[in-house]
Amino acid sequence: MNDKLYRIILFVAALIVPIVCGGVVYALATDAYDAFEHFGFLNFLTSSQWSYTAGNEQYGALPFITGTLMTALLALVFCIPFSLPVALFVGEYFRGTKVASVLSTVTDLLAGIPSIIYGLWGFFTLRPILMTLDISPQGSGVLTASLVLAIMIIPYVASLSAEFIKMVPNDLKEGAYSLGATRAEVIRKIIFPVAGSGMFSSYVLAIGRALGETMTVTMLIGNTNNIPDSIQSTGNSMASIIANQFGEADDLRLSSLIAIGLVLFLITALINIIGKIMIKRARIV
């Protein structure tokens, strides 16, 4: 094998990635076109109709966009009180110890659990608890989905935040200690400001992950096509409506679902790009 062939092979292999990505956008856009043309782009995005009465089908993406955003944001809110302690634990307090590595492993394993299993657990265990505690009358809904989603994204937030916390230079911390600061003060005044932007970027990336989560949400959100008006109500996310209806949809409904898919793809891609840029900036500390 000579060098020229080698370089060509490597190049072709690398070419596959842009081709697939481009193909994704192209395929989504072309098949979504019908829906957009029929309903009008902006109208589709802001309409909350979803009915398939023959002859007058009306589809709109708003309920699902709202559902997705709500669950993702709530999930982040719920997950921070847990991931922050873990991150501090692993990155600062007990850094380098056996306990920290066990905790790290546990967190990583959490990330590995398939989403359908999270959904099952949420449905059969969490739901009854929520219903008995009267937090959520019917069990399913935005709240339930967000809670389980929160558990799912803990690993992402915790491990990335821990990394940024570890990156805070020792001299800064030692400087503060030598001036008489307590541990809590060092954390608040030195670590947070320095690692803050990195930690924030981990939140952004976690949201990106939560936005696209399908099975868990489908099993827990209640599957109603309305804009959720409180966290206890049911709804649907972009991913879950696709999961539910794609199999039996055709023509206009199919195109609408694909259009929703396109919107989901673009939102996720945007959030991920923003998150990656933030990480890059934060790393060049």
């Binding site: 990505c21 395929a27 992950r209 399908t214 679902l257």
Partner: peptide, 22 residues
Amino acid sequence: VSYLTDLLQGTPSVIIGIITYI
């Protein structure tokens, strides 16, 4: 290509399903 790889990695699995369907 590196950017796009990350993009692909972060793409929701439903979307991959739709694409493969198409």
